[in-house]
Design a protein around this nucleic acid. Sequence first.
DNA 1: CGACCGATCGTCT
DNA 2: GACGATCGGTCGA
Length: 200
Amino acid sequence: MTKLSNKFYQREDVLLVAQELLGKVLVTKLAGNETAGRIVETEAYAGMEDKASHSYGGRRTKRNEVMYAEGGHAYIYLCYGIHHLFNVVTNKNDIPQAILIRALEPMWGIKHMMKRTGKAKTDETITKGPGNLSKAMGLSVAHSGFKLMGKYIFIADDGLVYPSQQIVSSPRIGVDYAGKDAQLPYRFFVKESRYVSGGK
DNA sequence: CGACCGATCGTCT
DNA sequence: GACGATCGGTCGA
């Protein structure tokens, strides 16, 4: 397993990076507990031009400030007052693009995931959906701005590559307010994974 | 199964 | 004062 480098995240094509993140392994080592899961669903948010993105029109606040940093940082924010959503910042400095990680297949540390989520059984809901996976991985807004190649949070490549016919795209979930941009096929997922959220 | 709804709070108007 | 890049429960068919 090799950690993805800055180069991986800082490329200019956020759609390409979102597709290539499928199959990679997200690892957290937080409060001494190590957990990992394989990424099976992502959504690209294409920056200032993208009405669904927090950085649409160059909007820049304390909350989304890290989107403007160089690729390779975590952007985590609170949604609906309850859920912490984990994003990967991409592209160069001052180009505010990010990729929302929407689903994982658990790989190890499942005991810790169950403890964090309070779930009694290990069905797929433990890491299905962006709010659920953040909880299982121990991620919260306290970790927004963390580097993705540090020792606490990173993404690694273990060599697995999904065949291209296994990778599908669709419009993004829950962005109806974005008008025409809500139709863009910026969501990518692994067709047959039972951990994928939302519709096919 | 699908539709609906409440929880809960930081951010922006 | 309104509204989410959500989730899980409930209700009815």
